[in-house]
Design a protein around this nucleic acid. Structure first.
Lengths: 209, 209, 209, 209
DNA sequence: TATGAATGAGCATTCATTCAT
DNA sequence: AATGAATGAATGCTCATTCAT
């Protein structure tokens, strides 16, 4: 499944071959390092402070100028999306692992649990999941991938009879989003446990009335 | 600089109908009407656009000057709280009705359903419920009332055996908040139905593990 | 010396004689009482908080509506001028007393001392004196009277040889204004004493190079 | 939100003249020029119109955007303080000169005269001096320096017998502040001369009682 | 390519003054 | 005459984004 980087131009090849030999490589490495640094900082900052932090703040904490941030991410939104990209990529990896190693039911439910654990108090992940919910704009590449991975887990769990059959992937993303947002202002551990248990029970299927 | 409370209440009308005709509290009536208008507009605008709408916008849409809005609600936050107040008041009323007329189980679950229906796509209600979740500041009057009403419904449902006993009110408000936020950008009816059913099932109690 | 009230219209006489008989007198009394109350409050508030207090605040503290304040004083500035009027009137009275009862020298210097004492920490009086200094707008009636009273004291003190002959009234008002403003943020008693003594010494006349 | 200091100093030029031609610190130079321009404008505007001029006005007159002004001076107050800084710095320099070159007495009195001349009609300087008088907040760096310079002048003048011994520095700043404020609306030259002479005479010491 | 200076629209809030009742 | 509601211009300040160096 090819994952396309979100719109990051890189149209400088060809003529600057000399540069590439003399110092181009190192520049590119520098740039890549900066990009990573920005993402790291943005990830942490968005996670802890939410989306309202000014870009200047992020640039500062990354030890870079604003201009540099904007060179890599032409828009605050795009920066955020890149952060989202990372989150989802990591989660997708986890999903893949679980798909390979675990039994269908546990794989699915453990994945949910994982997300909840990671999302607790992480405003960026919360916003990331929420942004994937917006029905009004089409799912970007990574979100699609994420949904597909989740769908895979769900499917197998349903085939194994561990999850109600009427449930759709969207329902799961929605529920995840909800649970995780629920915990935005509330890191009481018992709470998340109980909510997760309610949701999982509900997903397993009704048994009374 | 101390902010003076914006001349609330004094809504005892009735017998002074003659006064109202001759020269009575009609200015007061005007003011009250404006206040209502502001609240109406704010409710709608906050609901559809979120909390970021400028006060000027609200004033404009209400056909009033900014100053008038600020006279009634000295702070944007207070305006929002007034909107929240209304929402919660209405929900509390509904809860009371259900407490009186319905059986414990249905009363509880119907109330959840009601909230979900009302909250769907309503950013203001969502924010309202979310604001009640912030563990860091104590519940204000109406939010307390709301929680109490919900607690009452939950209690009776638990006594009647319709809801798991380990569930607490906070869990419910959290779940509601989550579900409703989930549907912020998504008004697909089937979705909300399924999520609700999952949650309700989960709340009823586990039957398989 | 006729002192004219600062532009306070009072053009309702004649035809409303009936009103004056039935209830007019009491209304006028009411109005006059309100006017006094506003002035009292404004005097105190301007003195302690400075000229930046909103008119609403004054109206509130006076237990009246803003409209009432504006009825009596069509402009914030006019209100302030009325306050100034009072201050200066009182000072003029004192000056008159001193003119009658005290010797020329002491009369003059005691008067200065009095003003300094009254002006210390009284932002309104300070502003009042300062407003009288503005060369760009002509002296209003009371300020003229005040200056004249001061001039009288000065004259006699000069004739008695207690004050340098080259000093003019304006110099005195200016100096007073300065001394009093000096003490605006500084209520240390010794300070005002010393400053006063320097100024008075200086006024008495030079004795060394 | 932490406010970062506006990139002061670094005024070591000289040898890098080549850099300046090719591509040197010209941006920095631009910024510095803007900073100066803002300060110049603010100085003039504050001086002539007082502290109430909107920042937008200053930005306009400087031909810059508001944001630029705020970049250099994060707060209106800080802008004003920077203006004050300049004034006081210049005065301190003058004081130093006089300390070196003039005899104690004349040095002191000429300094007073200088301040009065500069402060006449200069609302900014007046406010600057006044701000140094506020007993409620401790003196900032430059104001302390200013007071010290003045103290030095005073001391020497007192040792030389040119000034009354009971006078303290605070008295002098207070008097200066007062005299200068006195002249806020009044640029009549004779007036300031006479006031100054009165004050100076007073400071020299009493000779008659 | 990196930098950070400049920009300016945007926003919450205040307050003198007017006006309907 | 009194009231206080309405008005809206004005202001300090923020922050996403552009641009010159």
């Amino acid at each position: 499944m090819p994952i396309k980087e979100p719109s990051r131009a890189r149209d400088d090849v060809g003529s600057n071959s000399i540069d590439s030999v003399t110092m181009g490589k190192s520049l590119r490495a520098d740039a890549r390092r900066n990009r990573e640094r920005i993402l790291d900082v943005a990830t942490k900052v968005f996670a802890t402070e939410g989306l309202d932090v000014p870009i200047d703040e992020i640039a500062n904490r990354a030890g870079l100028g604003v201009g540099t941030v904007y060179r890599h991410f032409p828009t605050k939104e795009e920066l955020f999306e890149a952060v989202v990209f990372r989150f989802k990529q990591r989660l997708i990896d986890k999903a893949m692992e679980m798909l390979e190693h675990d039994d269908p039911g546990p794989a699915f439910f453990n994945f949910l649990s994982l997300i909840v654990r990671e999302g607790m108090g992480n405003k960026a992940l919360i916003a990331a999941l929420a942004s994937g919910m917006d029905i009004h704009r089409p799912l970007s590449g990574i979100s699609l991938d994420f949904r597909n991975a989740l769908g895979e887990l769900l499917n197998r769990a349903q085939l194994a009879g561990s999850v109600r059959n009427d449930i759709q992937v969207t329902d799961i993303t929605a529920i995840l989003c909800g649970v995780v947002r629920t915990l935005e202002y509330n890191d009481d551990y018992g709470l998340s446990e109980r909510i997760l248990s309610v949701v999982c029970d509900g997903l397993r299927g009704r048994c009374n009335l």
